[in-house]
């Protein structure tokens, strides 16, 4: 109960001070809208291509929405030393970090549904396997949040966090099978694609939306879970090692 109060307070404070601030809300909506609009216009309203673009646009919306947030909630608070206040709280460290990333995860999930809602006006979404789509969205949000956390913890300046996350984000857009299949990548890059969590997320999303996936859903989701656990553990280890001097 005591921990629940603390976690809820951290979550609410981050939502209020960071996520629900006008620039972030609009960023969170406009960004997916822009992506979606751009791709959907390019596909000239062809029903088949909207369905094939939707998974990629959903994944990109999540990736950008989540990773950009951690630079503020973690790197900035570390720099301004208010993070010390959290480290002093009588709360297990793991729960503290989950509370700190919870806002970004929810923000990412919310971002994912902006393109979905837009697509709903253009095509029939009846074919989507929601029981796969929703867990995939949540896991992609978790994995990209924890990737953002990993980056946010590894640097000391906010701009570094932003630069460094672009270093991951842009290659991932092309390597992870968001917009064209991993099978079409040069054979040298294929192993790299399978080393990135988003590849599995994109595969599951493509499968859920239009039945086209390379790996069984169970494998996609299980690998995502492993990535989440690994990145989270690595980030915590980094904080313990580098921030508690």
């Amino acid at each position: 109960m005591k921990w629940a109060i603390a976690i809820w307070a951290i979550l609410c404070k981050d939502m209020r001070t960071y996520y629900l601030k006008p620039p972030n809300v609009s960023w969170g909506i406009i960004f997916p809208l822009a992506w979606t609009g751009m791709f959907f216009i390019k596909s000239a309203g062809e029903v088949g291509s909207i369905a094939s673009l939707l998974p990629g646009v959903v994944a990109v919306s999540i990736l950008f929405g989540t990773t950009s947030m951690l630079a503020v909630t973690v790197t900035f608070e570390k720099k301004s030393r208010s993070f010390e206040r959290l480290l002093l709280a009588p709360l297990p460290f793991e729960l503290l970090m989950l509370a700190k990333t919870g806002g970004a995860i929810l923000f990412g999930v919310a971002n994912a549904f902006v393109p979905v809602i837009m697509a709903a006006f253009l095509i029939d979404l009846g074919g989507i396997v929601w029981s796969i789509f929703i867990p995939a969205v949540v896991l992609v949000a978790l994995a990209s949040t924890f990737l953002g956390l990993f980056i946010a913890v590894a640097v000391s300046e906010v701009f570094e966090a932003q630069t460094f996350s672009n270093f991951f984000r842009f290659p991932m857009m092309f390597l992870c099978g968001l917009f064209f299949p991993v099978e079409q990548l040069p054979s040298l890059l294929k192993p790299l694609a399978y080393a990135l969590p988003l590849t599995y997320g994109a595969d599951a999303l493509h499968g859920a939306v239009r039945g086209a996936h390379n790996l069984p859903f169970a494998v996609d989701l299980a690998v995502l879970v492993l990535f989440c656990a690994g990145l989270f553990a690595l980030s915590l280890w980094n904080i313990r090692r580098n921030w508690i001097l």
Binding site: K2, I5, W8, K13, R85, L86, L91
Partner: peptide, 10 residues
Amino acid sequence: CFCAALYGIG
């Protein structure tokens, strides 16, 4: 209030 909440105070 936030600081108190970190210590689980209602």
